[in-house]
Design a protein around this nucleic acid. Structure first.
Lengths: 229, 229
DNA sequence: ATAGCGTCCGAACGGTCGTACGCTAAAGGG
DNA sequence: CCCTTTAGCGTACGACCGTTCGGACGCTAT
């Protein structure tokens, strides 16, 4: 997926322009993650980097191109800090757990200063049309498709109950991610981290319990009601 | 809570100014729910309503006051279309279920053209400061507090297992709401409705199962793994 | 009849937005 | 050594932003 992602932006950071461009994008991702992709203005970005507006715009041609490049760069960072953190885990349930944990931890590590970049971008562009929306929706879809794949593999391997609806699991997993980002940013309540991990564990079975437990019903590993401690 | 909400905006729509003001706010809520509270501009709003910018601004004094009034109006609509739809249900689990169902249905009924107003507003303002953010955060907190109250009552009544962590339940319920809004608006996938209802049912127990089932563990009503059909 | 007030308009303000054009200065290969 | 490319700057533009101000109009009460 990184190949797809990075297909747009040229990789050469060795040239002078490449380094400037990379600096613009790095700053752009940071600003966009807090102020939004629309709140990212050329003048402000140029001032931040000690460039002129025209000098900055020369690298991209238009604001929309800049936005697309920023989205692209954010995707690169996002997948590097989430999915790529999980490739060590075996496909299926272990990978799925690792991806969820990596997602949670990428908020903990504050990879983006404004929380999850794509959560914010999705909310900002979900009611519009155009290339930026398409890019955001496509990349979010990529992430969710990856989750779904490993749900299916987990079912095949018997690590999740047969007949599990993978779309349903992904829906609920994404919900917990959105809830965590919501709690962190709106309520500024770091307690969401433990709640998100608990919710994930209940959705995917407790790590130790499910792995050693029989695949189907029986003692219902990790499906316990939501209890305190 | 409606008393709190409507404390800011004067209730008199009988005067000419009151009717104009109400029209501005109605249109403002609609625009803000799709374009965002910042995307709502005075000039555009005035043109839409056949007013001059100054004529419109005269009703509020500043853009921020307008935004606060719009948030307030949206809250009134939101609570009227969700919480108030549930006051017929008994406090505790029935009310909780009714509130969740009302929330889902308020998206189905397209109460706001841009999906859930406060989901969008929260995402837009979660990284800023100021009165608008405070208002949004406060109102969202009100909704979540109401949810938590009825989780607690449900536990007291024995409709949810003893030891249930109400914050955890609210966290996950909100997550499913966010997931539904996300799926609907970004992916434009109406299939989220059944998934959200399934998720809610699993969190709160199947309606028929839990009501007739013993309060604590035993056959684990509604805690079944995520299965298809 | 007239004074006053509520309601809204039109014009203008300074500011910021994205974008276009033309320039300079350095770099680099023939 | 020249000539092209590259990288960036400065200036200017038209559009739109939120806001201010003075005035027009109609209703109401004196």
């Amino acid at each position: 997926m990184l190949a797809i992602v990075s297909a747009v932006s040229p990789r050469r950071s060795s040239t002078e322009a490449g380094r400037t461009r990379a600096a613009i994008l790095a700053r752009g991702v940071a600003v966009a993650s807090t102020e939004g992709l629309e709140g990212l203005t050329i003048g402000r970005l140029a001032t931040d980097l000690g460039l002129s507006k025209s000098g900055l715009l020369g690298h991209f041609g238009s604001k929309e191109s800049l936005q697309l490049a920023v989205v692209d760069t954010a995707a690169e960072i996002f997948f590097r800090e989430t999915a790529d953190h999980a490739i060590g885990a075996a496909p299926g349930l272990p990978r799925l757990r690792a991806m969820c944990e990596a997602w949670i931890s990428h908020l903990e590590r504050e990879v983006f200063p404004g929380g999850c970049f794509f959560t914010a971008a999705a909310s900002e562009y979900d009611d519009r049309d155009g290339p930026v929306r398409d890019a955001v929706a496509g990349l979010v879809g990529l992430w969710e498709r990856d989750l779904r794949l490993h749900v299916r593999l987990a079912v095949q391997a018997g690590d999740l109950p047969a007949g599990t609806d993978s779309d349903q699991v992904v829906f609920e997993l994404v919900g917990q991610m959105l809830a965590l980002n919501h709690t962190l940013r709106l309520h500024r309540d770091r307690g969401g981290f433990v709640r998100a991990r608990r919710a994930m564990a209940r959705l995917l079975g407790q790590p130790e319990a499910t792995i050693s437990a029989p695949p189907a019903d029986a003692p219902q590993p990790g499906r316990a009601p939501v209890t305190s401690a």
